[in-house]
Structure formats: structure tokens, C-alpha cells
């Protein structure tokens, strides 16, 4: 009897360990398929503006400093698994009023998702890494999706706008240019899209870390690009994949520990977010960058399984869940 009881208790402990322990949680969470689509490409961005350590030095033969310009993709993550289709960052909408002359390959998000067999109406969740126009500019293209945005992101804009020093509260830092002040990068139209979701009761204001579905976890990365930047951890068959929006602007930056895209960035927080990717994914290979120039090439292995889609925009199949068919043409 005692032996039977001991055996039963042991069995119970094993079951308990598997159900609440990390192994159990991971085993229960679905494995997700992940794709990347290129909303557009910013052409000829000065290297030093994107990565200060890689500023162009005329005559330099160092690969770090011999490149004058970079071609930056604007990457949108598409994640499918369980009951969800999730979009991480939305890209931006190129209409006649916002035709960035140096942007190429823009295509409607509907066309870009169609190559994956997905309609914008099918998307259940939209997670924005932050609220800048090139990441939160197409929220209203996903009518049925619930938006996830950090509370700190909204508070950060509010704080900046009400700051008494005009150089800090400026919505434009100079005529024809908006870059470093904390309220820059948020056109009223973009913030309206966030507000629209809140008005319709289709928004979740996240305060820190949150599991939004089994195997999908938001991590805060406050001030690592903007006040309320956030990362998204995804459970896949190649391990954990971590999307970073502009906190992870450059994958090379994560690999080589260089800051990138320092708009409203606390560079220490950006490095801490890099560290988080190493810890969560076990290295730098599964960190998904928003503007990595090497995206869709062999040099950024996670994104190498790529093809060219609508209007010359690129797409990549990062990983497939078991049973999910490839979308690569």
C-alpha cells in the first residue's frame, strides 16, 4: 500500500512537472509558421545615419566604413498557428500624399498577404513593435484584428507633446525633417489608427510582458527604440523566434553588438534587448530585424528562403509548422 502510494505520488509529481514546467508549457504551445514580407524598401539611407559605427569614411577599405548608403527593407512579420494569424508590425501605406521618393517596391498589404494565402480580414491579432508611421501605418487594413500596443508607447507620445522645452516637444525637428525628438515619427494619421482600434474595442493596451496566445509572448523593450517598444516571442519548430521591430533594426547589429537606427533610443536598453534575444532564442540567428539590409539573402540565414513578390517586394518563409505547406512559389 505504501509502495503504491509512493508510486502514485511520484507519478503525480511527474505529471505536475510536465504540466506547469517550461518543458510542459512549450510542449503544449502550438508550433507556428512564420513569414516575412517587405512592405517597401527605403533606398540610399546614409550608412552612418542607420548605424553610427558604420559611418562612411571616404577611401576606407574597411567593410565597416566603406559603404556610403544602405538599402533598408521595411519588414512585416506574419505568424500563423493555433487559432491565430498574427501580424507583427504593419508597414506603411504609400498613397499619393505620402509618396516617399526614395521608397521602392511598395505594394498593398492585401497583395503581399495573398501570396501567403491570407486575407487581411483573416488576421486575428496585430502586434506593433512601436507606433512609428512605417510600422503602424496600416493598422486599419486589418478590420477584425485586435491591436496590441504598449501603454508606455502611448504615454511616451503624450509626455513628449506636453514637455515644456520646445526642442523636446517638437513634432518636427526641422523644416522637412523629423528624426530625433521623441514625438517625431508619429503623424496624427498613424496615431488615429491606434485610436480607431481603441474606439472599436479592438485594442489591448499591454503593460509589460503578456502571453497573447499559447506560444506567443510580448516582451517589453521600453526605450530600446521608442518609449514603449515591444518584442514578440514565437514558438516554432526551429526554437524560439524573437521579432524586435526597430529595437532589432539591424540583425548585424545584434550579431556584432552595434546600435542601429537610434531615433529615440536609449542605447543601453537596445543592448539589453539584444541580450534578451540571445537569452530567449539561444543566439542571434533567430532574432528578426525590421530593417536589416541583408534580409532575404543567404547572409541573413533565417530569411534566405525568399522570393520576389508584388511590385518587386520580397518575402521569405522563415519556418513552417508541421503540416503547413510551403508558400514559396
Amino acid at each position: 500500500m505504501t509502495k503504491q502510494l509512493r508510486l502514485l505520488a511520484l507519478l503525480g509529481l511527474v505529471v505536475l512537472a510536465f504540466s506547469i514546467g517550461p518543458t510542459g508549457a512549450a510542449a503544449q504551445a502550438p508550433l507556428y509558421s512564420v513569414w516575412l514580407v517587405e512592405s517597401s524598401q527605403f533606398k540610399d539611407v546614409p550608412s552612418g545615419a542607420f548605424m553610427p559605427d558604420r559611418v562612411f569614411v571616404p577611401g576606407s577599405s574597411s567593410p565597416m566604413n566603406n559603404q556610403a548608403f544602405m538599402q533598408l527593407p521595411v519588414n512585416v512579420g506574419v505568424i500563423k498557428g493555433g487559432k491565430d494569424i498574427v501580424v507583427y508590425d504593419t508597414g506603411w501605406k504609400q498613397q499619393d500624399y505620402l509618396k516617399m521618393t526614395n521608397s521602392v517596391h511598395w505594394a498593398p498589404i492585401r497583395q503581399q498577404l495573398a501570396q501567403l494565402g491570407i486575407r487581411p480580414e483573416d488576421v486575428t491579432k496585430v502586434v506593433i513593435g512601436h507606433g512609428h508611421w512605417d510600422h503602424a501605418g496600416q493598422i486599419d487594413e486589418f478590420p477584425n484584428a485586435t491591436l496590441y500596443v504598449q501603454k508606455a508607447e502611448l504615454e511616451g507620445i503624450q509626455w513628449a507633446l506636453n514637455y515644456p522645452e520646445p526642442h523636446i516637444s517638437a513634432v518636427n525637428t526641422s523644416p522637412g525633417g523629423c528624426a530625433r525628438s521623441p514625438a517625431c515619427g508619429y503623424p496624427p494619421l498613424t496615431v488615429d489608427q491606434i485610436y480607431g482600434k481603441i474606439l472599436r474595442g479592438k485594442a489591448v493596451i499591454v503593460d509589460g510582458m503578456m502571453e497573447i496566445a499559447p506560444g506567443l509572448t510580448i516582451h517589453p523593450a521600453h526605450r530600446a527604440h521608442t518609449a514603449g517598444s515591444q518584442l514578440l516571442q514565437v514558438n516554432t519548430s526551429i526554437g524560439q523566434v524573437l521579432f524586435g521591430s526597430d529595437v532589432f533594426s539591424s540583425w548585424e547589429g545584434i550579431r556584432d553588438w552595434m546600435i542601429a537606427n537610434p531615433q529615440q533610443t536609449d542605447t543601453v536598453q537596445q543592448f539589453l534587448a539584444y541580450e534578451k534575444c540571445y537569452k530567449i532564442t539561444g543566439g542571434y540567428q533567430n532574432c528578426v530585424a525590421a530593417h536589416e539590409p541583408l534580409s532575404y539573402s543567404e547572409k541573413y540565414p533565417l530569411t534566405r528562403n525568399s522570393w520576389v513578390g508584388p511590385n518587386g517586394s520580397r518575402a521569405a518563409e522563415l519556418v513552417l509548422a508541421p503540416g503547413e505547406k510551403s508558400r514559396r512559389p
Binding site: 500624399y97 525633417g177 515619427g185 526597430d246 537606427n261 530593417h291
Partner: peptide, 13 residues
Amino acid sequence: VGNTLWPGEYVPN
């Protein structure tokens, strides 16, 4: 209007 008068009003970020 900004697209015409201040074409670089929003830079890549």
C-alpha cells in the same frame, strides 16, 4: 500637403 511642401517631413525610422 506636407508631401508637396516638406517632402522629407517623415524620414525612415
